[in-house]
Simulated assay, not measured.
Amino acid sequence: MGNSKKFWMWMGIGAAVGAALSLCDKTTRASVKEDLGKVSGTAMYIAKDPKGFASEVKDSVNKVRTAVEQVVDDVAFIAEKVDEIRDVPPQVADIMKETKEAIGKISEKANNQEQQA
Rank of each mutant, 00 (worst) to 15 (best):
R29F: 01
K6E: 08
Q70D: 15
V57I: 07
K58T: 12
L23T: 05
V64W: 08
G2A: 15
A20M: 15
G37R: 01
E114W: 08
K63R: 15
G41S: 01
V88S: 13
G2E: 14
V71L: 13
E114C: 11
V68A: 08
S22T: 15
I103H: 02
V92E: 08
E98L: 08
I46A: 00
A20G: 09
A30F: 08
A15N: 10
G12A: 06
G14Q: 04
A67L: 02
D35K: 14
W8V: 10
V32A: 13
E56D: 12
A19D: 02
N62P: 03
V61D: 08
E69G: 06
A30L: 13
Q116D: 08
A76E: 15
V64L: 07
V71R: 10
K63I: 10
T42A: 14
V61M: 00
K6V: 11
D73N: 11
D74A: 14
K100Q: 06
K5L: 14
M1L: 09
T66Q: 07
K109Q: 15
F53A: 14
S107P: 01
N112H: 15
K26T: 15
W10C: 02
K38E: 14
Q115M: 13
G12P: 02
S107N: 12
K5R: 12
A20K: 00
M11V: 15
D74H: 05
V61F: 09
S40W: 08
E80Y: 11
V64K: 07
F77L: 13
R86P: 11
K109A: 12
D35Y: 12
D87I: 08
E80H: 04
A76V: 11
D83F: 11
I85L: 09
D35R: 13
D73M: 12
A30H: 04
Y45H: 15
D25T: 01
V71H: 04
D94F: 05
S31F: 02
I13D: 04
S4M: 12
E98P: 01
L36S: 07
C24M: 07
D83V: 07
C24Q: 14
A54G: 00
A43Y: 03
R65E: 12
V72A: 10
E69W: 04
V88G: 03
G12M: 10
M96G: 11
V64G: 10
V82F: 02
M96Q: 04
E114P: 10
V39L: 12
W8S: 02
K109F: 11
A67N: 04
P90Y: 00
S31W: 05
A16W: 03
K48Q: 09
G12I: 00
G14H: 00
S107K: 14
I106M: 12
D74V: 02
I103E: 05
A67R: 03
K26Y: 15
G41T: 03
E98S: 09
K81R: 06
Q70M: 01
M1A: 07
E114T: 07
V72C: 03
N62I: 09
M9W: 08
G104M: 02
E98W: 05
R29V: 01
G37W: 09
V61G: 05
M9R: 15
T99Y: 11
V92D: 02
R29G: 06
N62W: 09
L36Y: 06
K6W: 07
G41M: 00
K58Q: 07
E80R: 08
K5S: 06
M9K: 10
